[in-house]
Design a protein around this nucleic acid. Structure first.
Length: 607
RNA sequence: GCCGAUGUAGCUCAGUGGUAGAGCAAUCGAUUCGUAAUCGAUCGGUCGCGAGUUCAAAUCUCGCCAUCGGCUCCA
């Protein structure tokens, strides 16, 4: 019971006692992890003489090392490897740095027959080549830095975590390697803190909370990656949709609705068919000319609406918006919760603009996205990425001139706004560059949420035009944008960001009326009805339980506001308010509570 | 799609070859209760699915499906 009570405390009351250093900022941790990864590789080769080593870098919470081994490693193997590592550490082997020439490095690698190392050596440009030895038994190419002796490691601060398949050089067509992930810290206390945080992250996992809070479900009979939204989850979706729809109407967007399927032809014109044929659900119909596909993108549909009339420059910017549900046949291994699904709803819009309008419209869109991020309290958890094409790749359509214009427009926008950003080369869409808004989930994995894309290419492919002021036909530019990205992914992220404690305006159930005994049930139900009439999501709990149980249930459902009704409250037409965030707030008149809640909802505040 | 792990009641989990279990939830009854669990009874399972081994399979083997951790992919 004590445990359960402490686990129900708010996150603010659970501040970690230990500060965990970040690898990227700690030389000591880098040394620990480089050295530990060498020890792991040595241990693996001792237990599995056929294993060949490849690369083994440090990562944020530890390190991994990729091996080519005839048999995949199992979790049992990990235990044996960890044991072997402890032995090596306890032997207090010196870690010796040696500088050798490229030729000498080649000679030594050939002598121990490690073909992957040879390839790695080819990639090292500078000389001399540095080698690190563990005693006189094992060595690896490594830039360092390292500890001076294995005994500087604390065996109880290292733990092998998992095995995974990984491809050599990250290339699907190359050899499949066995990757071992490990975590390593300065002290056992840091390891314990890391594990505590991992558990906390697991508690915030939207898949777990989504189930507990009854927001969405999956059904094997419906299929993987196809979430079903329960009444509570649907409230979340609707509130988010309504919020954005209102914002968009304020900003001159016009809602449209388009079908869920179209002829294959449509996606051939856009280029999606050629590019993403295998990522679409299989075509309906026998012959390709007559076939239909489920839509995976809304843009070609919105383009058809644009094309349905001769457009004048006076109509531009034309902003067509749709909460469009799309279906993509994602690889089975990629699916997960709400963050990667096969059917999802984009808060999509396409803006058709003149070239002159591009910069200001782009800025307007970024302004909308930033205001959405702020409203959702995601401002501490996002990065802006300029997603440009990889000039060495041929997977893009359109002219260099169009690409340069589009990329420059995005650069100008982030410079104008003075926005923090980083560049992702090769992250562009095939038809144009993007400005993406990236957030982290509870497990520190990064996901793209909002996106703005500048596109000179689809207008070309669909031969879009408008009549300019001088009477000539000109080509518009398109901006694709989705502030949420997808409702599914956004809600997954929000669940984790809030740990299931939604702000009042988003909470599926906002107020629960709790009668102390049966005598107050009618009063509670009447107040709930009155609140609902005022646009508040309120309900009375009339189950035959004691108050303590009713509160417990409401707390477990993470309902922000609980209103206790006893004989005294009925007498005074008042409510005893308890909030999840602040506990007991005392007794207030019913009408005051009603107004306060309404205000809080309207202002996206807490009660 | 690839590598590894997991799959027992609505939920969380126990059960390692010999008659499927617990707590919570649900239902019914008693209780009328003041800020995180009132008491009792009842209901609830093709042990993910399908084959095989065995006198006997939740348990061992194989195949498939789904989920989880990674890899690859991500309009």
């Amino acid at each position: 019971m004590v445990q359960q009570m402490s686990s129900a405390q708010s996150p603010a009351q659970q501040q970690p006692k230990i500060q965990l250093p970040r690898t990227s900022e700690s030389e000591t941790l880098k040394k620990i992890r480089h050295t530990a990864s060498h020890i792991m590789a040595m241990a693996v080769q001792k237990l599995f003489p056929k294993a060949q080593v490849t690369i083994g870098p440090w990562i944020e919470n530890g390190f991994y090392y990729d091996f080519d081994n005839p048999e995949p490693f199992t979790e049992k193997d990990l235990k044996a490897i960890q044991k072997e590592m402890v032995k090596i550490i306890n032997r207090k082997l010196p870690v010796i740095r040696e500088e050798v020439s490229r030729e000498e490095a080649q000679r030594r690698i050939k002598a121990i027959n490690e073909p992957y190392k040879l390839e790695i050596l080819d990639d090292i440009k500078q000389e001399p080549i540095t080698i690190y030895h563990l005693g006189d038994e094992w060595w690896d190419l490594c830039a360092g830095p390292h500890l001076e002796n294995t005994s500087e490691l604390s065996p109880k601060a290292i733990e092998l975590e998992s095995v995974a398949g990984a491809y050599w050089r990250g290339d699907e067509t190359k050899a499949q390697l066995q990757r071992i992930y490990a975590t390593a810290w300065e002290s056992p206390e840091q390891l314990a803190e890391y594990k505590r945080r991992k558990e906390e992250a697991l508690r915030r996992d939207h898949r777990k909370l989504g189930k507990e809070l009854g927001l969405f479900v999956f059904s094997d009979d419906v299929g993987p990656g196809l979430p079903l939204w329960t009444p509570k989850g649907t409230i979340l979706r609707s509130v988010l949709e309504d919020f954005l729809k209102q914002e968009q109407i304020n900003r001159g967007y016009q809602p449209v609705v388009t079908p869920h399927i179209s002829r294959v032809e449509l996606f051939k014109i856009s280029g999606h068919w050629q590019k993403y044929k295998d990522d679409l659900f299989p075509m309906m119909g026998e012959k390709e000319e007559e076939g239909f596909v489920l839509k995976a993108m809304n843009c070609p549909f919105h383009i058809q609406i644009y094309k349905s009339e001769l457009r004048s420059y006076r109509e531009l910017p034309l902003r067509l918006a749709e909460f469009g549900t799309v279906y993509r046949y994602e690889q089975s291994g990629e699916l997960g919760g709400l963050t990667r699904v096969r059917g999802f709803t984009q808060d999509d819009a396409h803006l058709f603009v003149t070239p002159e309008q591009l910069d200001s419209e782009f800025l307007n869109v970024v302004d909308l996205i930033l205001s959405v991020i702020k409203s959702l309290r995601l401002d501490q958890n996002f990065k802006a990425r300029l997603s440009f094409r990889d000039p060495t790749s041929d997977k893009y359509i359109g002219s260099d001139d169009a690409w340069n214009k589009a990329e420059n427009a995005i650069r100008r926008a982030v410079e104008t706004l003075g926005m923090d950003h980083f560049e992702g080369i090769g992250e562009a869409a095939f038809y144009g560059p993007k400005l993406d808004f990236i957030v982290k989930d509870a497990l520190e994995r990064e996901w793209q949420l909002g996106t703005v894309q500048v596109d000179y290419n689809l207008p070309e492919r669909f031969d879009l035009e408008y009549v300019a002021e001088d009477g000539t036909r000109k080509r518009p530019v398109m901006i694709h944008r989705a502030p949420f990205g997808s409702l599914e992914r956004l809600i997954g992220i929000l669940i984790e960001e809030y740990a299931g404690d939604f702000p009042l305006w988003l909470a599926p159930a906002q107020v629960r009326l709790l009668p102390v005994s049966e005598a107050q049930q009618d009063f509670a139900m009447n107040v709930a009805t009155k609140m609902r009439a005022g646009g508040i999501r309120a309900a009375a709990d009339t189950s035959n339980e004691r108050l303590g149980k009713l509160i417990r249930n409401a707390e477990k459902e993470k309902i922000p506001v609980m209103a206790v009704v006893g004989a005294k409250e009925v007498e005074a037409n008042s409510l005893s308010i308890r909030t999840r965030a602040a506990g007991e707030l005392g007794v207030m008149p019913v009408d005051d509570v009603l107004h306060k809640i309404k205000d809080a909802i309207a202002n996206h505040d807490n009660f």
